[in-house]
């Protein structure tokens, strides 16, 4: 099956490693994508605060172009895009007044919106369309022993839990287990990363991200796997600031449970996109998967594991 593909702004900028890893992984699995013609900004969260109706028009243009492209479904990997596109569908369904305005605006571009194109997330597609068993068939270098904190973030399970459990999502767990990883118990799977506050109000914003990193470390994770470009950015790119603010805080020593160690040095835990891990297991190179774009490199043991498996 061929899908329309909506990359969104982040996947062309700060989150390009997500696109760089998603496309080759789907290619290996035989999923064809066609990038949406002349797509525009989804009308994301920040936009909604200014004018909700215009945000809806922005989102609808993308939905209408997807309908015109003729593929049955639209793939939106960024969580914010995924939510905004879905939310717009709900909103248009609930409010005939807004729908009338949107349709009128769309006519300016010879477009119409019928609401018949589902917006899908790559996790949903991989688990429910491709299937875990199919994915296992393509694993060349299982990432045995790699301990993962699976971090889903907010917007793919809230407010709509369409393809996964709202309290304890497991689609990413199952995918990563299929390629050999081990999941640590991570109670913050869906806790907020602070969103755009990390840039605007660093005090509260960074605290949100710091809590996520610290908990992954105390739970013994080697790597944090993410599904959203903003989550990945927040957890990956502000470590210097976090170390300055909270690096002196102590956590139980992972090697000696009676001792405590400062959290600072441990904060350099790699934060990757789940598609990068799948790509590694499929035998794709680190470069192809954009792994060099992370601020904290994947730790030696993990890579060594991979290489020894290859040998």
């Amino acid at each position: 099956m061929k899908y329309s593909y909506f990359p969104g702004c982040s996947l062309k900028g700060t989150g390009r490693a997500y696109e760089e890893s998603l496309l080759p992984v789907l290619k290996v699995l035989g999923v064809e994508l066609e990038e949406l013609d002349d797509w525009n900004c989804c009308g994301a969260t920040a936009y909604m605060a200014v004018d909700e109706v215009k945000a809806c028009v922005m989102a609808s243009r993308n939905l209408a172009i997807a309908e015109k492209a003729g593929h049955k479904e639209l793939l939106a990997p960024c969580s914010a895009c995924y939510l905004v596109l879905n939310k717009t569908k709900h909103y248009l369904h609930e409010s005939p007044v807004v729908e009338a305005v949107v349709q009128k605006a769309l006519r300016q571009a010879n477009l119409t919106y019928s609401g018949n194109t589902p917006v899908r997330h790559p996790l949903d597609l991989l688990v429910n369309n491709v299937g875990i068993e199919e994915i296992k068939k393509h694993v060349k270098h299982p990432l045995k022993g790699l301990k993962i904190a699976p971090y889903y973030g907010c917007q793919i399970v809230r407010p709509y839990a369409t393809f996964d459990d709202q309290y304890n999502p497991t689609t990413m767990d199952r995918l990563l287990e299929a390629i050999g990883c081990t999941m640590v118990t991570y109670p913050l799977k869906t806790r907020c990363c602070g969103g755009s506050l990390t840039g605007t109000l660093p005090e509260p914003g960074l605290l949100c991200s710091y809590i996520l990193l610290k908990e992954a470390i105390t739970r013994g994770a080697d790597v944090i796997a993410t599904v959203c470009p903003l989550c990945q950015f927040n957890l990956d790119c502000y470590r210097d600031k976090m170390k300055g603010k909270w690096g002196h805080e102590t956590i139980p020593d992972p090697r000696n449970k009676d001792a405590r160690v400062p959290v600072g040095p441990h904060l350099d835990i790699p934060v990757v996109f789940f598609t990068q891990l799948i790509g590694l297991a499929f035998g794709l190179s680190e470069k192809e998967l954009g792994l060099q774009r992370g601020f904290a490199p994947m730790r030696k043991p993990a890579c060594a594991q991979r290489q020894s498996a290859a040998a």
Binding site: P187, L188, I211, E215, T218, T250, P252, R260
Partner: peptide, 11 residues
């Protein structure tokens, strides 16, 4: 109800 600690007294 969660089991993650924010400060040591919660561990």
């Amino acid at each position: 109800v969660t089991d993650w600690a924010f400060i040591p007294e919660e561990e």
